[in-house]
Design a protein around this nucleic acid. Sequence first.
DNA 1: AGGAGCGAGGTAATCGTTGTCATCGCGGGA
DNA 2: TCCCGCGATGACAACGATTACCTCGCTCCT
Lengths: 330, 330
Amino acid sequence: MTRRAGLRDVAARAATSTKTASRVINGDPRVSADTRARVEQAVEELAYRPDPLARSLRRGLDETVGVVVDEVSDPFFASVIGEIERMALDRGVTVIIASTRRLAEREHIVLDGLLQRRVAGLIVASISDDHSHLRTASCPVVFIDRAPVGLAADAVVVDDRVGAVQAMEHLLGHGHRRIAYVGDRLSIATARLREVGYREALAAAGVPVRADYVEEMDPQDGDGLEVVQRLLALDEPPTAIFSANTRCSLRLLPPLHRLGRTDVAFISFGDFPTAEALDPPVSVVNHSPELIGRLAATRLFRRMNGDEVAPETIVAPVAIVPRGSGEVTP
Amino acid sequence: MTRRAGLRDVAARAATSTKTASRVINGDPRVSADTRARVEQAVEELAYRPDPLARSLRRGLDETVGVVVDEVSDPFFASVIGEIERMALDRGVTVIIASTRRLAEREHIVLDGLLQRRVAGLIVASISDDHSHLRTASCPVVFIDRAPVGLAADAVVVDDRVGAVQAMEHLLGHGHRRIAYVGDRLSIATARLREVGYREALAAAGVPVRADYVEEMDPQDGDGLEVVQRLLALDEPPTAIFSANTRCSLRLLPPLHRLGRTDVAFISFGDFPTAEALDPPVSVVNHSPELIGRLAATRLFRRMNGDEVAPETIVAPVAIVPRGSGEVTP
DNA sequence: AGGAGCGAGGTAATCGTTGTCATCGCGGGA
DNA sequence: TCCCGCGATGACAACGATTACCTCGCTCCT
C-alpha cells in the first residue's frame, strides 16, 4: 500500500505549491477559483486528510480537550464525559480522558501531561485544594463539580448547599427530627458544602446537630453495612438518612433493604437508574450530569474561540424528586 | 514567562548536541556516564519535558490508544474505559475516547479520525458488520464485546451464548416453561448470540419457542413499561423473563416492581449496582467490564510492543449470580 | 604495524504543515 | 506615463524532536 498522501502530493497533483494547497485546505479566501478547484480535486482524488499531529505541532495547539475526573467509571462522570464527547465530536474536537483516582499527585501528573500535549482546553473535576499553578496554563480551563481555589476561572457546579437544604427541609417537613448525614470525606469541597446545608437546615429548624449522626464514608470502598449498623445501633437511632452522595447511597441501600429497615426515610443527593425500582422508590435530589457536561463544554468552546468574558461560576440547578423513600414518616 | 525549554536548550546547557541529549532522554546506552549526567542535570534544571506532538510526528506514531464504544455513559463501557485508562496511565499512554452512538457511519468517521491521528492502538466495540477496511489499519486493533467480521484480529468477548444458556437453564431448573426473552435489537451481534442461547436452551429442554415471548427493545430509549405490559397481557403470560441486556433490565424492572409483579422470575444478563437492593434482589449473569477492559488493554499493549502472536478471541468468563429474582418459582 | 570494530558524539535531513516574506502581474490614480 | 497597491502565489524557514549517516579515537587481533 502506498504511503498516505501528504500536502506535497496534493500540491504536485494540482500543479501548485504546498502553501497554496494549504490555503485551500484552510479556507483562505486569497486563492483563485481556478486553483482552488484544482486543489480540491486533487484532495478528493488522493483522499488527502491533513495530519493532525503535524498541524498541531506547527500551530502550537492541538484541537483536543482533556477531561480530568476522579474515576471514569463513576456513573456521574461517565455521563458528564459522554455529553462532552458528544459535543466535541460535532466540532471535530478530540477528547482525551484521564482519571485522578482522587489522588492530588496523580491529578498533577495527568494535568501536566495534558498541558504538555498542548490541549486546546481542559475540563477538570479537581480534587486538589489549590489551583494557582493552573494560572499559567496555556489553554482555557473549566472546572466542574468543584470550584477552583486560588484562581479565577470558569466553573460549572451543582448547588450543593441548596440541594442539601432542600433535601433536609423535605425530611423535616415530613416530621423527621433525627436525621443522619452520610457523605463523602469532608476533605472534598462538594461534600463539605452538602454537610453545611445539612447543618444549616437543622439549625433553621431548631434541631441540634448530633455528632454521632454524621458519618463520613469513602464512596469508593466504604462499608455501607457498617455505617448503617452503627447508626441504627445508637441509643436514639435516626429516623431518616440523608445520603449526600450517589455512590454512598448505592452502598447504604442494599444493607438497609437487607435488614428490612425501609421504615427509615432516605434521600439521596444524586439520582441513579434503579432508584425507581426499589421499594419504596428512592427520593433523590437530582443534578443532571448531562447538563453539567453540556454547560462546561459550551463554556470551554466559547473560550477556545477566544471569547474573553469574565470567569464565571455557573450553578446547575437541582431539584428534589419525591418518589417514596423520602416521604416515609418517623 | 519564558518559553518552555526544548531539547536544544537542554543540549546547550549540557554543552553537547541535541542528538546526544535525545539519546539520554531515550535511554540510549551509547552515551558516556559523564555526558549522561550533564544532560540529566540540565533536564532537571530546565524542567524539560519532551514534546509529545513533535515526537509523535517524527516517529510516525502517537503513544496513544483510541477507545471506541457505543456510548461513553453506558455503565458497561464506562467501566471498560475506566479500566483501560487505568492501565494506560501506568504506562504513560494517553487515552482518546469516541462514541459511535451505534451509528455505523459515525463509527467510520471516528475510526478514521483516530487512525489519522496515528494512534498506537485501538480498542473498538464495533457496531458495524464488516471490518475488512481495518485490515490496512496502521496499528493493532482489539475488538471488545463484539468479534470482528471479515478480519483476523484480537477480540475480547463475553460468552454470550453460554451465558444465555446458563441463565435459561437456571430458570428452567426452577420449573419455568414460559420464559420471555427481552434484549437489544437483533442486528447487534451480541444480542443475536444471546437470543441463540435462549433458543438453544429451550430446545434442549423440549420447550417450543413462542414468537410472542421474544421482544426486541432498544436499550437507549425503549419503553420498558410497554414491553412488560405486552408480555403480561398475553393469553399465557410468561412466568419468567430473561433480560439479555443490562440497560434493558434497568428499563424493565421499575415497571415490573411498580406493577407489583415480582412473582415473575427475572434474570439479567449483566450486573448493576442496585441489583442487590431490589426486592427480591436481582439474579444476574455477571460479566465483569473491568475484566474485559483489562484483557483488552493487556492484549493491545502486547501487540504495541511488537508481539506477533496469532490473533485470538479471548472469551471472558460469565457466571450466574443467584440472588432471588431468578429463583422465584412459577 | 595496519586496519577492523566499537564506543561516543555530531551534522544535516526529515516528519507534514503553516507563518513570513518576497515576487509577479495588472489596473487605477496622480 | 509612472508608481502604488492589491490579489495571487511560491520559496523558505520553522515547529521540536528523531533518524540516517558520518567522524574521531581507541583497542585488539593478525
